[in-house]
Amino acid sequence: MSLLAQLTVNGLIAGAIYALVAAGFSLIYSTNKFMHFAHGISVVVGAYILYSLFSLIGIPFYLACILTLIFSSLFGLGTYRLMYLPLQNKKASNVVLLIASIGVLILFQNVIQLIFGPDVKSVGYIKVARGLNVFGAIITPLQIVIILISITLFVLLYLFMKKSKLGRDMRAVSDNKELASIMGINHKRIADYSFIIGSFLAGVAGILIGLEQNLNPTMGTILIIKGFTGAVIGGVGFIPGAVLGSFLLGLAENFSIWFLPSGYKDAIAFVLLFIFLLLKPTGLFGINKDVKK
């Protein structure tokens, strides 16, 4: 095994997982301009729904996946309609929404523990086996799928934001809400869509992460921190950038640990975040006008 190849592959796997979380988070941020940290729990809810449907009830896997995606989208829409929208209607500032999103995260994390208990759960669809040898590095088929899906997401999101009517409307709202409503774009409708699509992506992340890692109620916090860091590195309001930033984060963590003690692994992400913000406050691919709000 070549160490370099393996570290690259490890970085890609980690990055792809971060990207799955970052994509939805960033999409929601870009149109709504607040930090939806509860996105982390949307992912976990997705994973637990898959676990209940497939592992507990025994619904066929692909059907269970489709249902998971639907539930996740509804869950995201629900958080928006029932929590954020009423707050926004009362002119709550974005910091209040941030605290509310953390409240939602704590709430559902513990609801999940009440229902499923604190133990590790495993979906058990894929048997753990020694991975394939690709250019001297070892990787499992599922991990290849995860990386491919992340890359596909990157392309699709890019096309969606550039080409589709809805994507262009979203960008318009993201750039300037007032101007967008003058142009006849209903920003509440756009916000609905951003939560539906963003949480759909959380469902995708929940399924894949649920298969790759195991499930426990507290996993959402770690996931959202990493996804969020990836998103920031790539430019928080620019979705394809969030995906690239996540890959960059995964690779940076892995290569730095090559020569640093592994206790610094999590710190690398934050040192990187800090440096990026100082040198390039809009993230690698960000658009400049966001800073001077």
């Binding site: 770690i222 592994s262 692994k265």
Partner: peptide
Amino acid sequence: SETFERGAVDIRTQLTKTKD
């Protein structure tokens, strides 16, 4: 001698170094 944070679920890097 490699470490991880409590609850960490991506330990590949540490394991890759260990394997090496």
